[in-house]
């Protein structure tokens, strides 16, 4: 199925768990300070393992960076 991760189109297996998305798209799973939103709704970290992705989901993954 097709999903959009940070606006990038990706084809992933059906019923992929959000927690399994990180390795799938090449993001280091130990990365700290990360938040995820699906279709503009934030998914709390404790729900990453139980959230199943759907076709055309728009996933936003952000992390902390340097700034003033």
């Amino acid at each position: 199925m097709v999903i959009y991760v940070n606006d990038e189109k990706r084809t992933v297996e059906e019923n992929l768990l959000l927690s399994n998305l990180f390795p799938e798209i090449g993001i280091n799973s130990t990365i700290k300070g990360v938040a995820v939103a699906i279709n503009e709704r934030i998914v709390m970290q404790k729900k990453w393992k139980s959230t199943i992705l759907s076709e055309n989901d728009k996933i936003l993954i952000i992390s902390a960076t340097k700034g003033g």
Binding site: V5, N6, E8, I25, G26, I27, N28, I31, K32, G33, V34, L60, I61, I62, S63, A64, T65, K66, G67, G68
Partner: peptide, 16 residues
């Protein structure tokens, strides 16, 4: 600290 979209190629720094 600021926020940014994570780098899909894994080039994310460990500043935190």
């Amino acid at each position: 600290v600021a926020l940014k979209r994570v780098d899909m190629k894994g080039n994310n720094d460990d500043m935190i």
